[in-house]
Amino acid sequence: MKNRIHPALIVITVLTFLFLLGPLVVIIGSALSDTSYLTFPPQGLTLHWFTNIFEVSAFTRTMGTSFMLAIGGTTVSMLIGIPAAYALARYRVELPAFLGNVFVLPILIPEIVLGFSLMKSLASGFGLPIIVALLIGHALIVLPYTVRVVGASLNSFDFSIEEAAVSLGCTRIKAFFVVVLPNIRAGIIAGFILAFITSLNDVSISIFLTGPGVSTLPIQLLAHMEQFFDPTIASASVLLMGVTVAVMAVVERTLGLTFLTK
């Protein structure tokens, strides 16, 4: 017996993939174009625009800042998010329900409002150095991802496992590290990656918090595009895409990607 597939399904599937992958093809094409302006299909082929990224010091500097912020901001959000997610899951009955939603606020509030209020409070109000304000801002916008994704694996965690460890002589704190953490590892890695990518690609918060001398790669790309409409921006985008794909590939190899779709 043969499964019949409706022709419309094939058409919709193809269109969906075109919609998802088309822009990426355009970007990759533009990045390779041997012209001094963005164009597609590419005219001539060159890797010049890729090397250009590393020759323009503004790009290399902001790339460093971006990676530093993504790692730093995600780490800070993990330090807050894992204990928060643990408390929310462990004391689900005792804690008021709205508390869980508080941690999602950063993605519910319009980013422009959040960015502006962070600028007013962190940068203007407390007069924090730009890099510190950026770090706090990034930690804040990725917090919902860490709390939610880590929370998802904690919700399926059987807390009697923790009690079993305690009954066998572990203190509560030790049991958390020895028994709880290893079993929510997948959630932590998934949360870290989601947060890392979100931070790396953020524009709306960073644009308010960056200032003289300190910028992130996406902001630098924006600024660059306003002045020069050359394919560097496309090649930088391809590079960011490459980093994302590489991270995903590593995760797929070690954990399987299914936990992201669960």
């Binding site: 009690e163 079993a164 460890a165 009954s167």
Partner: peptide, 12 residues
Amino acid sequence: GLVFQTYALFPH
């Protein structure tokens, strides 16, 4: 020594 309804073995 405790034995739980859900066994509570360490999965890892």
